[in-house]
């Protein structure tokens, strides 16, 4: 077995060259180059994780914005409905008030008209009385020749008129 048979002559050369070559591998490749390679890979992993996190955050923001939008939408709808209801009730109130005012005016006018009619009919009645009294005096004078007093004629007319 050469590993054992040659050990005395070769061990120093083996150890020397192994230390030289492994030293090169460790110091130049292991310490010099591997950290850079690994650094690149780590940086890439970090970038991927960062991008994913950013995307997640953006999603969360979008959800938030949507929820916000929904809340505002509902609020706006409620506000619009309130405004509409207020406008409706205002319109109802104002039309009621105007109706009431119009009613009042109409009833005023009716009352005035009725008053005028009554006044007119009273005046007419008074006229009729006077005319009727004159006519009754005339008739009395012609029939009986008695000149009835104006007052008596009037009372007689009133009595007849009151009886219908």
């Amino acid at each position: 077995m050469p590993q054992i048979a040659q050990i005395a002559e070769t061990y120093s050369s083996q150890i020397f060259w192994l230390l030289v070559t492994f030293g090169f591998v460790f110091f130049v490749i292991g310490l010099g180059m591997v950290p850079k390679v690994q650094g690149t890979a780590d940086a890439r992993d970090a970038k991927i994780t960062g991008d994913l996190d950013a995307a997640k955050a953006a999603f969360a923001r979008a959800d938030e914005a949507e929820a916000d939008y929904r809340v505002r939408d509902t609020e706006n709808r409620a506000a619009a409905q309130a405004v509409m209801a207020k406008a409706k009730s205002d319109a109802a109130k104002s039309s009621e008030a105007r109706l009431a005012a119009a009613d009042a005016e109409i009833s005023d006018r009716i009352a005035a008209a009725e008053a005028r009619i009554q006044a007119a009919s009273q005046a007419a009645m008074a006229e009729i009385e006077t005319v009727a009294a004159d006519a009754a005096r005339d008739m009395v004078a012609r029939i009986s020749g008695v000149d009835a007093s104006e007052e008596a004629a009037r009372n007689a007319v009133k009595a007849v008129l009151a009886h219908g």
Binding site: T10, S12, F22, F24, I29, V34
Partner: peptide, 25 residues
């Protein structure tokens, strides 16, 4: 005083180091 002859074993150590170096480059 120690023998450090460049042997076929040393040659393969150097080859392994060089191949690894090229690989990592």
């Amino acid at each position: 005083g120690m023998n450090i002859a460049f042997t076929n074993s040393a040659l393969y150590m150097v080859l392994a180091a060089i191949v690894l170096w090229v690989f990592v480059i």
